[in-house]
């Protein structure tokens, strides 16, 4: 046990070393950590509940104040609720939708790509056809239609949303994984794995998959970026339930509600959710780029250097 925890500590230290090589990356990691901590804080109930909706112009887009510190430091949004609180309430759900959707996208894409590439033959023909068809259907387009026709109770379900936002997103990953698998199949370590008596599943999902780990990890993070784009973007079109904790709805209201168009009254209500989204996307994109380094043993050992 103690060896395991020591190993874990070593791994974490390593990840930290990789990140600290570049200030941008370190910044991105800190940003992501802040979001995750905020999500946990909300989920664990350390945050006051959202106050009820207050109609009337006087409550809308109030300027920052120190009342109920810190919840009103960004003022209020279009329903008169504290803006900071609604933004923080958006974090757990957005992260959950993004992560689940990424898991589905990457899980399905990897499995289909591996099986098509490794098994070959008729299985490959059929799966390739499925991949090619899915490639012609843009995820957000079909997601848009589905979001419109699904009954409201399903639209707020995190799992349904994650499924809708990954409905054909797996296809491009599947195509790339298939191509890489076909190339790897000719490598000698796969021949050896066969003589050792490893079954097809072991070869596909351990030997081949391990080889593609950096690529898969990068895609997992990039799929989160895509899902966040879809989740907030469809809300911005006004197609999602108008819950105050969706950043897309907040931006939509700041503009359509008229506040931001003619004065600076809604300036915080417009920019706070925008910065929240862009910061998260920026951090995720930088982290995605670093996955290659995290999973590459050569670089890892180089950084471990003195400890070896």
């Amino acid at each position: 046990m103690s060896e395991k925890s020591r190993n874990l500590a070593k791994q974490l230290k390593l990840v930290f070393k990789i990140f600290s090589r570049s200030p941008t990356l370190l910044f991105s990691l800190v940003v992501l950590l802040v979001y995750i901590i905020a999500a946990l804080v909300v989920v664990l109930g350390f945050v006051p509940p959202l106050p009820p909706y207050k109609g009337g112009w006087e409550y809308m887009y109030q300027p920052p104040s120190l009342r109920d510190f810190p919840w009103y430091i960004l003022g209020t949004e279009y329903t008169g609720r504290p803006l900071l609180l609604t933004i923080i309430y958006g974090i757990p759900k957005t992260l959950a939708v993004a992560f689940l959707s990424a898991l589905i996208t990457v899980g399905v894409g990897t499995a289909i790509g591996l099986i098509a590439g490794y098994v070959g033959g008729l299985v490959d023909e059929l799966l390739s056809l499925a991949i090619n068809v899915a490639l012609t259907i843009p995820t957000y387009l079909l997601a848009l239609i589905l979001v419109v026709i699904l009954p409201p109770e399903l639209k707020t379900n995190v799992l349904v949303l994650a499924g809708v936002l990954s409905i054909t997103a797996w296809a491009s990953l599947a195509r790339a994984v298939r191509a890489q698998t076909i190339a790897l199949k000719r490598r000698e370590f796969i021949d050896v794995a066969k003589t050792i008596g490893y079954g097809s599943w072991k070869i596909m999902f351990d030997e081949v998959l391990r080889f593609m780990a950096p690529f898969i990890a990068m895609n997992l993070v990039l799929s989160c970026v895509g899902a966040i784009y879809g989740y907030t973007g469809l809300a911005f079109l006004g197609l999602m339930p108008m819950t105050p904790d969706n950043w897309g709805v907040q931006i939509y209201m700041a503009i359509r509600g008229g506040g931001a168009l003619y004065s600076d009254k809604a300036i915080l209500a417009l920019w706070s959710p925008i910065i929240t989204i862009v910061l998260l996307q920026y951090a995720l994109i930088n982290i995605a780029k670093a996955m290659e380094d995290i999973f590459n043993p050569a670089l890892r050992t180089y950084l471990q250097g003195e400890e070896m």
């Binding site: 784009y229 973007g233 911005f236």
Partner: peptide
């Protein structure tokens, strides 16, 4: 940075 800005957000900002 531009890669991390969803196109609809940039559209909204430019529009406003």
């Amino acid at each position: 940075v531009f890669n991390s800005i969803p196109n609809w957000i940039l559209a909204a900002v430019f529009f406003v």
